[in-house]
Amino acid sequence: MVLQKNRNQLCAVDSTVNDNVMELHDVGVQYRTRRSFFRHDYFTALEGVSFTIKRGETLGILGSNGCGKSTLLRVLANIYGVDSGTVSWHCKQVALLSLALGFDPELSGRDNAIISGMFLGARKREVLAMLDEIIEFSELEGFINNPIKTYSSGMRARLGFSVALKMRSELLLIDEVLGVGDGKFKLKANKAMLDKINSKQTVVLVSHSMNQILKLCERALWLDQGKIKMIGETEEVVSAYQQFIKN
């Protein structure tokens, strides 16, 4: 089943097996800001954005601050509705990678891992099946039954990262790949995340690191002031973007 979205309307559309995970057609998003009681200003965050995400690929998104990268990720995750155009999903699960999602300080590390996993789109039994792996990766075996208000911020981040890493979704949206924790854990976390991105997982990755985009992505999309400036092979897009920055 495909979910097609047009002006905040979700409707089911019949589909056969599709190579594309998602299709955006002429998508526009505006933010409304209040000037006075009845007057509003509109800021266009995305305009005329059309592209497709192919199954299994890693698509990099680059652009300067405020060009609409995070807004685009939120549109892909169905967090933001669109003001114009259509978004069609050919997948059931889309997850925006978020660390420590929905953590409650009073609950134990174990319960928080379950809740966070469920917020990332998994069913409770799926999280439970994966719980031992999550706890092992986070290296928090001795503390997992304590309330997370007793954790250090590093420990909390490690638990959040482990949950996010182990959850499976058809399309993973990542706003900067972040390693967390101390030196040793950070290396392990970075490696695990890179392995995940390099696997058959479909990923949309926003990053300011050109090296990371070059290393991980098959295609890249350059966003400028809410519009697509260029989309295509990573090397071509990155070199054009770097040229643009130099000028």
């Binding site: 905040n8 800001t33 509705g81």
Partner: peptide
């Protein structure tokens, strides 16, 4: 149901 995805944008501002 009608306005669901408007709220995220609204409170992000």
């Amino acid at each position: 149901k009608k306005t669901e995805t408007n709220y995220a944008r609204l409170i992000a501002q």
